[in-house]
Design a protein around this nucleic acid. Sequence first.
DNA 1: ATACAATGTAGAGTAAACTCTATGTCAAGA
DNA 2: TCTTGACATAGAGTTTACTCTACATTGTAT
Lengths: 123, 123
Amino acid sequence: MEYSISEFSRLTNLGIHTLRYYEHENLITPKRNSSNRRCYSDKDLAWIEFIKRLKDTGMPIKEIQRYAELRAKGDLTLNERMEMLTVHRESLNEQIKALQEHMAKLDDKIDFYRQEIERTSLK
Amino acid sequence: MEYSISEFSRLTNLGIHTLRYYEHENLITPKRNSSNRRCYSDKDLAWIEFIKRLKDTGMPIKEIQRYAELRAKGDLTLNERMEMLTVHRESLNEQIKALQEHMAKLDDKIDFYRQEIERTSLK
DNA sequence: ATACAATGTAGAGTAAACTCTATGTCAAGA
DNA sequence: TCTTGACATAGAGTTTACTCTACATTGTAT
């Protein structure tokens, strides 16, 4: 299947402006039809979903750009891309650990508040 | 103990400019000495550490501002503050869940890469 | 043929959170 | 006294990632 930019915008939940911005930043390069309109494919869809995942896990656009560049060069860059993902995996792991520690501390704080409210009878 | 802004900067790992910025945004209000220099206390230190925690868990400055405002009003706002923290706790919980899902998908992708590299003998 | 809605490009504007610059004050050492 | 060096304020500048505006084209319905 092929999609116009507005269809693709709906499918990906990314604004039309954002899609054009991503293209401008060379994250994605959809085909064009005879009238120069963008034609997004299902492959583009899978790719943009992966881009979203990288973004949602804190990878900056610049680095996704680098990854996209490698991807465009084909199979010869598989090693390098896997290396990037492996490094990113580690950062993700640390993010999760950090958030879990924050969660524990936050729980302590909430408990403390609960006691204070009890003690001062502000409940 | 009391600390000058540069000492406090070292203790908190926040730049001097950032500390002044936080004060400008009413997140923290250190005492001043007779020459109008900032005098940070140990209480300020504990407070800034908590601010960092909120920030690191994705709370925007605006909301920390709101929390700081309540804190400045004293014990009468304990309930409201606990409510804020409880809501924030939930968001933190969801962040962790989301990251864990991303991690699982990323692992799948890395496995796929490993197989592709094996298959195409690019190792 | 005409209107109009979707699309195209280039570039300006926005929001958040800093970060830096210009300029001035002040206490302490040479 | 003179000179630093740390600190003060006000406000400008930066970075990231969009988001929007202005204006030109194009395909389709009337």
